[in-house]
């Protein structure tokens, strides 16, 4: 079979809803797009530990500290599921990580915003993890088997993340006037960046059509964004916080909540490296990687010696 015939068979398998597994034939471009998208997803989980990790030592109670620790540990786990899945495409984890630390690989723009108060931790759980659930529920049906399975695993843990944030924000929004103000301020700052998490509008999203043809994604950025807005409006009302969008209104005909203009200039600025925390995040990740290098080397050397001794003894 030539490449054209192989591509046709491949597309037929996709259209039949079959999963593609690591050793199956796949178009080079499919592999490349998956590596780009999956490693970007993995980097996001890892960077995502930084804004929340920032508050672990200052959690308001022991209970909240344990919850936040568990959540941040989960984010590390999610990163690892995704790196593991990406490696099935024949790339080395080290190269993926270094492409992000020293190269051009990107991660979600949302993690380039600072966490100013503990209310930000509540809102990240509610909005940021809520948005991630919408996206990852779709990706759990992705055509690439290992990616779908990694997302399924992630989804099972993500609803704890959202619920702990929503519960905590509800408490804060029903608290003292000062707490209420903190809660609303955090919602105001995170709302628009959260909507940007779904990526640029469909007409400006260069990769979407291709990814949908290959069933890597099954919904467009705007469809996912809409479904997130629809469910969030109700949740905001129930706990008495206001979404900072004066244009937000219900459309009886479509059954959807229409939202105002998203500040896309800001999105592109952050993506290109000029968000409030881009430099800080990269600096922190490089520091961790470089200062951990001797530990990784020492562990490897210890394993080598142990094996050598065991060989000698027997």
């Amino acid at each position: 079979m030539d490449t054209k015939e192989k591509s046709d068979v491949f597309q037929k398998r996709i259209d039949n809803g079959e999963k593609i597994e690591p050793k199956d034939w796949m178009p080079e471009r499919y592999r490349k797009q998956l590596i780009r998208m999956m490693s970007q997803h993995a980097h996001s989980e890892i960077v995502g530990m930084l804004p929340e990790g920032n508050w672990i030592t200052r959690a308001p109670s022991l209970k909240r500290k344990m919850v936040l620790l568990a959540k941040v540990q989960d984010e590390a786990g999610h990163g690892l599921y995704l790196y593991s899945a990406t490696e099935t495409l024949g790339v080395k984890r080290k190269d993926l990580v270094e492409d992000y630390l020293y190269g051009k690989a990107k991660y979600s723009s949302i993690f380039n915003y600072p966490t100013l108060t503990y209310a930000d931790i509540c809102v990240i759980g509610w909005l940021v993890d809520g948005a991630a659930i919408v996206n990852q529920t779709m990706l759990a049906k992705s055509s690439y088997g290992p990616y779908a399975r990694a997302n399924l695993r992630i989804c099972k843990e993500e609803s704890f993340h959202k619920k702990q944030g929503y519960e905590m924000l509800a408490k804060m929004a029903g608290g003292t006037p000062e707490q209420q103000k903190m809660a609303q301020d955090a919602v105001n700052r995170w709302w628009w960046p959260t909507l940007m998490m779904f990526g640029p509008p469909d007409e400006e999203s260069p990769n979407s059509a291709e990814l949908i043809t290959w069933a890597v994604k099954t919904k467009t950025n705007d469809e996912l964004r809409q479904s997130f807005v629809d469910r969030t409006v109700m949740e905001a009302r129930k706990i008495g916080v206001t979404l900072p969008d004066p244009d937000l209104k219900y459309n009886e005909e479509t059954g959807h909540w229409e939202y105002g203009e998203i500040p896309w200039d800001e999105f592109w600025r952050v993506i290109k490296g000029d968000g409030p925390m881009n430099r800080e995040r990269l600096k922190a990740r490089r520091k961790a990687y470089e200062e951990g290098a001797w530990v990784r080397e020492a562990a490897m050397e210890y394993a080598r010696k142990k094996k050598y001794r065991e060989g000698k003894a027997s």
């Binding site: 599921y81 593991s84 899945a85 490897m300 210890y302 394993a303």
Partner: peptide, 17 residues
């Protein structure tokens, strides 16, 4: 899935975590 580890013992611990 998979994990990276220098030896079997750490592979088990990383797999658990």
């Amino acid at each position: 899935g998979s994990v990276h580890a220098p030896d079997a013992e750490m592979a088990l611990q990383n797999a658990r975590d």
